[in-house]
Amino acid sequence: MSRIRFFAAIIVALIGGLVTTSAATSAATAAADRTSRYRIAMIVYRGCEDACRGFHDYLAARKIPADVEILDAATDRRRLLDHIARVRRDKPDLLVTWGTTVSLEALGPFDAVDPARHIVDTAAVFMIVSNPVESRLVPNLQSSGRNVTGTRYLVPVETQLKAARSYLPFSRLAVIYNPLEENSRLTVASLRRLAATEDFTLIERQVGLRDGAPDPASIAPLMAGIRKAGAQLLYQPPDTFLHIQRDMLTAAATAMRIPVLAAAEAPVLNSQALMGVVNRYYTVGQLTAAQAEKILIGKVAPRDIPIMAPRNFSFLVNMRVARELQRYPPMKVLRFAEVVQVGK
C-alpha cells in the first residue's frame, strides 16, 4: 500500500516538474523571440571605460537581448544636455548614467525633479556616483522613491584607511582637495571624523583657485608644505579635478617620497599612486548590468531595488612606485593584493 503511494508521489512530482519546465522554457523562448530587442541608452562622461565595458560584458554573458547606445558627453556640458534631450525624445527601455555630474543633470535631485528638464518616464540606473545620498540623487540607499536605482563604487573611507594601515602604518595623513567639488568636501568631512576615532592627525590642503577655477600650478607648492608638516601618506579623494591632474599629483608626491592612497583605481593603475582600496570599475559595471537585468527581465520597479555595492573590494598596489619608494608591501598584504605596474 505504502509502496503504491510512494510511486504515485513520484509520478505526480515528475509530471509537475515537466509542466513547470516546459512553461519556463516557453517563457524563455518567448523572451528570446522578442521581435524588438531592449533599447538601452548609456550617457557617459569620458567615453566607454571599464565600468561601461563591464556592463556590456555582463549583458553579453547573460545573453540579454539588448542594444546599448553609448552617448558620450566627452566632459562637455553642452553635449551632455543634447544627450539628455535625445533620451527624453527617444524614450529607450532603460537609461544608464555614468558619474555624479551626468546622473544629476539627467535625473535631478530626488527632491527637486523638474519634469521639463529631467528624465522622468524612463527607468534609470546610475553608476560611478561617489556619494548618491549626499549629492541628493537618492534619499537613502534602500530606495530612490522614484523610477531610479543604481550602484555604489566607493569603498567606505574607514575601510580604505584600515586596509592602508596594514601596508603602511601612519599617524599623520594628508589630503589635498578641490574646495569647489562637493564630493571632495564630503570626503574630507568624513576624514575629519575618522581622525578622532582612528587616531591620526589630518593635514588638510585646498587646491588654489585662479579665476574661480582650481589651479593645477598650485599643487606642487602644496606638496612641499605637506611634506614639511610630516605627512606619512597622502589621500587622493574622489575629486574630478585631481582625477584629471592625477599624473602630476602622484608624480609630485612620489618625488617628495610621500606615498599616495587613492580613492579611485585610475591613479594606481595608470599613474603613480602607491595603493588604492577600491571597487574595480569593471566589477561595478557588471553589478550595474545586474541591476538593469532585474528591471528589464525581472520586471522589478527601480524604486524597489536597493542601491548596491560590490561585495569584495580590491586592494591595488602599484609595484613600480613601491620599488621607487623602497616601501614593499608586507607578505600578508601580498596574499590578497592586486599588484599592478609590475614590469613597467
Binding site: 608591501p329 608586507p330 607578505m331
Partner: peptide
Amino acid sequence: DALQGMDQL
C-alpha cells in the same frame, strides 16, 4: 632580503 612582514607571516 627585503621581504616585508616576514616575522608576522
